[in-house]
Design a protein around this nucleic acid. Structure first.
Lengths: 209, 209, 209, 209
DNA sequence: TATGAATGAGTATTCATTCAT
DNA sequence: AATGAATGAATACTCATTCAT
């Protein structure tokens, strides 16, 4: 997102918020395209239509803008999942339908897949970043985990493994497919995830009364 | 692996092979630790105990050593898979046991997961590299794909999707789990993969006679 | 020219202009002394009293500073020639006197000869540079060419060859003499040029009415 | 010139002489194409079909092969000029015809023009090289100088300047035109030189009896 | 707040040269 | 005499970061 040239006078705060926003969107785009290491602050600032100095007026360093992106994604993700939880009474088929929709969502936001991998990789290397990242990741996994739990309850089946582990597995699958999608071939991320999920359901045992 | 200071005289060829080997192992280690972009040739050469020039006497550029690592891993992988194919008469259960062993292998080589992701990411960004990488990747997937095909034949089941796609799915899962393992928690990649595989088997239809 | 340490506060623009100027003069000196290939950016920056980064804040690459030097010389050259054209009514002898003065000017700027050769050599090897260089060179030759044309008109003589070719010949002579001057012996470039010019005049035919 | 693969056994000396010759021709070609600084020893050795070590078995360093090229050119040049002097009785017109032929020779050996400039430039920068180069250059100029002297004697004219200076002027002109020829336009070096020479003749005074 | 010139440490890569074979 | 792996210093160029304006 490039700097908007507007005639309306913005208050100081509004104007700063706009600068921040432009920088964040530019960073997002460039991290996705070239990775965290491959995107330079100069390029981010330029893409946003500002100077390098503007970057440092808004963020202490390069890592900070990556964390901001993570924070934003988490917010979106949480909202999405909680909207699924909103309607509490669902049949097993309805839940699967919801999941289908969620899987397609993953597919749609192709950018996020790459960004998510950048985040993960950076966490693997920067302990400071790992702490913040880990916390957010756990929230994400727990949400997915509770979802899976509920799904099996609805179906009156015993999950074939601890729900937390299944959740981690699905996140891994989504990340791995995202990694491939960019280069290998246009692949059906969504349907792949559903395929594995249906497999898990098929192999689950009926719950003991 | 640092340069070995040996008193034994090595022949020319042996000495060169040693240098090459040291550089490759140093590169492997540093690529895993800091990523392709994060590992400098200076560091690789230093870690190996040689000068930067020694690197360029052995490899045309930085990408070349990454490809060499890929080539080596593939050789190992292919040997491993073909050893499973060696004994032709296996019951369904025997094949699953073999697979269990194979899945544990994946887990053992923890480094490879990270390296594999570096490879994939670099391919996503360097078209020249992507060409070479893609070729090797396809070989890998096809080997796995034929394996899956055989497995379902043995079990007299119809695979729930095209074997090539299932293969890609398992590779994605392994990569994604590897990505998590380094930072999140020590998790049982192998058993996760078996879990999904058993699910697929459970959801497959019996083959029509 | 080394960085001037001044106590006076300079405005932003003035300070940048000073940096640029120091770099240009340092580059000029080192290109003359060691050639384009032999002068490193590190040396240029150091000679100017700045960091290498300062160079790249002011010029996109090494070629750019060479072009800047060319541009500057051309401006000076064009101003000089146009001042000769200024007074329109000149007798043949007066024109020759003007030329004598101009030829001595060539001699004065001893450095330029070497720089001019560096420029030409670099153009012979870098097609990108050749394009820019060629354009400026043609302007130079055309100015000289028109001058020669006018001179022969004044003298009512037919030039013994196309003025453009004669201009190229004089430039070649000046460059060749410059090349020798640095090492062989201190020789009077100016008078040599006049000698050849008077020869051409002597061998020219009287213009038909 | 690439290594010749011959079945005939060469004596040790012959074989070394062949290696030397190949290296010299390869160096000649690459110095012309890329300049002295731009041609690497690795490239020269490779072009000749040998290893870098072979270069150092035959020449102490890079400058040595440049000097060897100079020495060879001098031999050729001296032979050429002395063949012109061979026939002692020539009319003025015959001498001009000879000169025409000589001028065309200059044109033909386009390579030498560039090499000559490389030589001159390197002499301007390396005092050690300059000493050797200067000696050879003076021989060349003196030969040309005596030639010009004789020409004017034949024509019974007083040369318009010291013959040594005229000789230097013609060499400069030839070098300058050579410099331009590579990049600017296909130009008539030979005829340009004759044009200037005829001019000098036209402007010369008849010799006092 | 935002600018962007300047810094200094870093990058991949090249090269003349050495030396054990 | 010829090889070519290895060296060490140099090269053009990039980048996150600082700071006077």
């Amino acid at each position: 997102m490039t700097k908007l040239i507007t005639k309306k006078r913005l208050s100081r705060e509004q104007s700063q918020a706009q600068t921040r926003e432009c920088l964040i969107q530019a960073a997002r785009q460039l991290f996705v395209q070239h990775g965290f290491g491959g995107a330079s602050i100069r390029d981010i600032a330029e893409e946003a239509g500002y100077s390098q100095g503007a970057f440092y007026s808004n963020f202490p360093d390069k890592e900070a803008i990556l964390l901001e992106l993570l924070r934003r994604h988490m917010e979106a993700e949480v909202m999405q999942l909680s909207s699924v939880f909103a309607t509490d009474v669902l049949t097993g088929d309805e839940v699967l339908a919801e999941l289908d929709a969620w899987a397609l969502t993953l597919h749609a936001d192709g950018d996020w897949a790459m960004l998510s991998i950048e985040l993960q990789l950076h966490a693997n290397r920067s302990p400071a970043f790992a702490a913040e990242y880990g916390a957010i990741w756990r929230v994400h996994r727990n949400a997915l985990s509770r979802f899976i739990e509920r799904l099996f309850e609805h179906l009156a089946l015993v999950p074939p493994a601890e729900p937390g582990q299944l959740a981690a597995g699905f996140i891994a699958l989504a990340q791995g497919l995202g990694l491939q999608r960019a280069s290998i071939h246009p692949d059906p991320t969504g349907s792949m995830i559903m395929l594995f999920l249906r497999g898990l359901i098929a192999s689950a045992q009926v719950m003991a009364k």
